[in-house]
Amino acid sequence: MDIITILFYLVTSVIILSAISLIIVNNTVHAALLLVLIFFNSAILWLMLKAEFLSIVLVLVYVGAVLVLFLFVVMLLDIPVRKNSNQKLYLLFSVVTSLVMFAELYMVIFYHNFTNEVNIITSSELNNTYQIGLMLFTDYIFSFEVTAFILLVAIIAAIAINMTEKQRSLRQDPGKQILESKKSRLRIIKGNKL
Protein backbone atom coordinates (compact mmCIF):
# COMPACT_ATOMS: atom_id res chain seq x y z
CA MET A 1 0.00 0.00 0.00
CA ASP A 2 1.10 3.52 -0.75
CA ILE A 3 2.15 5.59 2.28
CA ILE A 4 -0.33 8.33 1.29
CA THR A 5 -3.16 5.79 1.28
CA ILE A 6 -2.22 4.56 4.76
CA LEU A 7 -2.16 8.15 5.96
CA PHE A 8 -5.53 8.80 4.36
CA TYR A 9 -7.17 5.87 6.15
CA LEU A 10 -5.54 6.86 9.45
CA VAL A 11 -6.72 10.47 9.21
CA THR A 12 -10.25 9.66 8.06
CA SER A 13 -10.70 7.04 10.79
CA VAL A 14 -9.61 9.61 13.37
CA ILE A 15 -12.13 12.07 11.92
CA ILE A 16 -15.00 9.58 11.99
CA LEU A 17 -14.19 8.24 15.47
CA SER A 18 -13.87 11.70 16.99
CA ALA A 19 -17.04 12.85 15.21
CA ILE A 20 -18.95 9.95 16.77
CA SER A 21 -17.50 10.53 20.22
CA LEU A 22 -18.19 14.28 19.84
CA ILE A 23 -21.90 13.44 19.83
CA ILE A 24 -21.66 10.86 22.60
CA VAL A 25 -19.57 12.66 25.27
CA ASN A 26 -21.40 14.45 28.05
CA ASN A 27 -18.72 17.00 28.85
CA THR A 28 -19.01 20.08 26.62
CA VAL A 29 -15.33 20.99 26.95
CA HIS A 30 -14.37 17.53 25.71
CA ALA A 31 -16.78 17.93 22.81
CA ALA A 32 -15.18 21.24 21.81
CA LEU A 33 -11.70 19.71 21.99
CA LEU A 34 -12.84 16.78 19.83
CA LEU A 35 -14.06 19.32 17.28
CA VAL A 36 -10.53 20.77 17.31
CA LEU A 37 -9.21 17.29 16.51
CA ILE A 38 -11.69 16.92 13.64
CA PHE A 39 -10.71 20.26 12.11
CA PHE A 40 -7.05 19.45 12.46
CA ASN A 41 -7.41 16.14 10.67
CA SER A 42 -9.54 17.73 7.96
CA ALA A 43 -6.70 20.19 7.45
CA ILE A 44 -4.33 17.24 6.98
CA LEU A 45 -6.76 15.78 4.45
CA TRP A 46 -6.73 19.02 2.47
CA LEU A 47 -2.97 19.17 2.70
CA MET A 48 -2.83 15.72 1.09
CA LEU A 49 -4.95 17.11 -1.78
CA LYS A 50 -2.26 19.82 -2.23
CA ALA A 51 -4.61 22.57 -1.04
CA GLU A 52 -2.05 24.03 1.37
CA PHE A 53 -3.61 27.49 1.55
CA LEU A 54 -7.06 26.19 2.41
CA SER A 55 -5.75 23.72 4.95
CA ILE A 56 -3.65 26.28 6.83
CA VAL A 57 -6.50 28.79 6.74
CA LEU A 58 -8.80 26.11 8.19
CA VAL A 59 -6.43 25.69 11.12
CA LEU A 60 -5.91 29.45 11.48
CA VAL A 61 -9.55 30.52 11.34
CA TYR A 62 -11.51 27.61 12.79
CA VAL A 63 -9.05 26.10 15.23
CA GLY A 64 -7.14 29.27 16.07
CA ALA A 65 -10.06 31.65 16.44
CA VAL A 66 -13.59 30.23 16.25
CA LEU A 67 -13.08 27.23 18.53
CA VAL A 68 -11.12 29.30 21.02
CA LEU A 69 -14.24 31.41 21.44
CA PHE A 70 -16.33 28.21 21.68
CA LEU A 71 -14.12 26.92 24.48
CA PHE A 72 -14.16 30.31 26.12
CA VAL A 73 -17.95 30.38 26.30
CA VAL A 74 -18.28 26.72 27.29
CA MET A 75 -15.80 27.11 30.14
CA LEU A 76 -17.30 30.33 31.45
CA LEU A 77 -20.90 29.12 31.35
CA ASP A 78 -20.06 25.90 33.20
CA ILE A 79 -22.93 23.92 31.66
CA PRO A 80 -24.00 21.15 34.06
CA VAL A 81 -23.83 17.58 32.77
CA ARG A 82 -27.34 16.16 32.70
CA LYS A 83 -29.22 13.33 31.08
CA ASN A 84 -31.84 14.15 28.49
CA SER A 85 -35.30 13.13 29.59
CA ASN A 86 -36.83 12.51 26.17
CA GLN A 87 -34.06 10.55 24.55
CA LYS A 88 -36.39 8.67 22.21
CA LEU A 89 -37.59 11.88 20.57
CA TYR A 90 -34.00 13.01 20.03
CA LEU A 91 -33.15 9.61 18.59
CA LEU A 92 -36.02 9.84 16.11
CA PHE A 93 -34.97 13.30 14.95
CA SER A 94 -31.32 12.38 14.67
CA VAL A 95 -32.07 9.23 12.64
CA VAL A 96 -34.32 11.16 10.25
CA THR A 97 -31.80 13.98 9.84
CA SER A 98 -28.90 11.66 9.22
CA LEU A 99 -30.89 9.61 6.70
CA VAL A 100 -31.84 12.76 4.79
CA MET A 101 -28.24 13.96 4.80
CA PHE A 102 -27.01 10.57 3.66
CA ALA A 103 -29.51 10.53 0.79
CA GLU A 104 -28.46 14.03 -0.26
CA LEU A 105 -24.78 13.21 -0.22
CA TYR A 106 -25.43 9.97 -2.10
CA MET A 107 -27.30 11.82 -4.83
CA VAL A 108 -24.68 14.54 -5.07
CA ILE A 109 -21.84 12.07 -5.37
CA PHE A 110 -23.37 9.40 -7.63
CA TYR A 111 -25.81 11.29 -9.87
CA HIS A 112 -23.54 14.20 -10.60
CA ASN A 113 -20.97 14.39 -13.32
CA PHE A 114 -17.97 16.20 -11.90
CA THR A 115 -15.54 15.66 -14.73
CA ASN A 116 -16.59 18.32 -17.20
CA GLU A 117 -17.51 21.18 -14.93
CA VAL A 118 -14.72 22.11 -12.60
CA ASN A 119 -11.93 23.92 -14.33
CA ILE A 120 -8.93 23.40 -12.10
CA ILE A 121 -5.72 25.14 -12.95
CA THR A 122 -3.02 22.60 -12.29
CA SER A 123 0.07 24.35 -13.57
CA SER A 124 2.97 23.82 -11.22
CA GLU A 125 4.37 27.31 -11.81
CA LEU A 126 1.60 29.11 -9.97
CA ASN A 127 1.21 28.18 -6.35
CA ASN A 128 -2.02 27.33 -4.64
CA THR A 129 -2.40 30.65 -2.81
CA TYR A 130 -1.88 32.63 -6.00
CA GLN A 131 -4.47 30.58 -7.88
CA ILE A 132 -7.09 31.02 -5.18
CA GLY A 133 -6.44 34.75 -5.08
CA LEU A 134 -6.75 34.95 -8.84
CA MET A 135 -10.06 33.10 -8.85
CA LEU A 136 -11.50 35.08 -5.94
CA PHE A 137 -10.71 38.45 -7.46
CA THR A 138 -11.70 37.66 -11.06
CA ASP A 139 -14.36 34.99 -11.56
CA TYR A 140 -15.94 35.09 -8.12
CA ILE A 141 -15.45 38.78 -7.25
CA PHE A 142 -19.17 39.43 -6.81
CA SER A 143 -19.87 36.60 -4.37
CA PHE A 144 -16.60 37.34 -2.56
CA GLU A 145 -17.54 40.98 -1.99
CA VAL A 146 -21.07 40.06 -0.95
CA THR A 147 -19.66 37.66 1.65
CA ALA A 148 -17.37 40.37 2.96
CA PHE A 149 -20.29 42.76 3.20
CA ILE A 150 -22.43 40.24 5.09
CA LEU A 151 -19.60 39.67 7.57
CA LEU A 152 -19.24 43.44 8.05
CA VAL A 153 -22.95 43.73 8.77
CA ALA A 154 -22.66 40.90 11.29
CA ILE A 155 -19.76 42.63 13.05
CA ILE A 156 -21.67 45.92 13.27
CA ALA A 157 -24.76 44.10 14.53
CA ALA A 158 -22.75 42.34 17.25
CA ILE A 159 -21.30 45.66 18.40
CA ALA A 160 -24.74 47.31 18.30
CA ILE A 161 -26.23 44.58 20.51
CA ASN A 162 -23.42 45.11 22.98
CA MET A 163 -23.82 48.89 23.02
CA THR A 164 -27.32 48.71 24.51
CA GLU A 165 -25.85 47.21 27.70
CA LYS A 166 -23.81 50.34 28.30
CA GLN A 167 -26.11 52.03 30.80
CA ARG A 168 -26.23 49.09 33.15
CA SER A 169 -22.54 48.27 33.40
CA LEU A 170 -19.87 50.06 35.37
CA ARG A 171 -16.86 51.01 33.33
CA GLN A 172 -13.88 53.28 33.53
CA ASP A 173 -13.54 56.43 31.49
CA PRO A 174 -9.92 56.44 30.27
CA GLY A 175 -10.04 60.13 29.38
CA LYS A 176 -10.89 61.06 32.95
CA GLN A 177 -8.23 58.75 34.33
CA ILE A 178 -5.50 60.31 32.21
CA LEU A 179 -6.54 63.88 33.06
CA GLU A 180 -6.46 63.08 36.77
CA SER A 181 -3.54 64.80 38.50
CA LYS A 182 -1.95 64.96 41.91
CA LYS A 183 -3.73 68.23 42.66
CA SER A 184 -7.22 66.85 42.21
CA ARG A 185 -6.51 63.81 44.38
CA LEU A 186 -4.29 64.97 47.23
CA ARG A 187 -4.96 67.75 49.73
CA ILE A 188 -2.23 68.82 52.10
CA ILE A 189 -3.53 70.01 55.46
CA LYS A 190 -1.34 72.54 57.20
CA GLY A 191 -1.17 73.39 60.86
CA ASN A 192 -1.28 71.46 64.11
CA LYS A 193 -4.97 70.70 64.05
CA LEU A 194 -4.36 66.95 64.15
Binding site: V29, L33, V36, E52, F53, I56, V57, V59, L60, V63, G64, A65, V68, L71, F72, M75, N127, N128, T129
Partner: peptide
Protein backbone atom coordinates in the same frame (compact mmCIF):
# COMPACT_ATOMS: atom_id res chain seq x y z
CA UNK B 1 10.52 25.85 2.33
CA UNK B 2 6.74 26.02 1.84
CA UNK B 3 4.88 28.67 -0.11
CA UNK B 4 2.46 29.58 2.66
CA UNK B 5 5.19 29.86 5.31
CA UNK B 6 3.95 33.04 6.96
CA UNK B 7 0.42 31.69 7.12
CA UNK B 8 1.72 28.50 8.71
CA UNK B 9 3.51 30.52 11.39
CA UNK B 10 0.38 32.56 12.07
CA UNK B 11 -1.63 29.34 12.41
CA UNK B 12 0.90 27.75 14.76
CA UNK B 13 1.21 30.79 17.02
CA UNK B 14 -2.58 31.00 17.21
CA UNK B 15 -2.67 27.38 18.43
CA UNK B 16 -0.47 28.17 21.43
CA UNK B 17 -3.55 29.42 23.26
CA UNK B 18 -4.94 25.87 23.52
CA UNK B 19 -2.23 24.76 25.90
CA UNK B 20 -3.04 27.69 28.17
CA UNK B 21 -6.82 27.25 28.04
CA UNK B 22 -6.66 23.49 28.60
CA UNK B 23 -4.18 23.91 31.46
CA UNK B 24 -6.36 26.53 33.11
CA UNK B 25 -9.52 24.49 32.83
Amino acid sequence: DINAGLLYILAMTSLGIYGIIIAGW
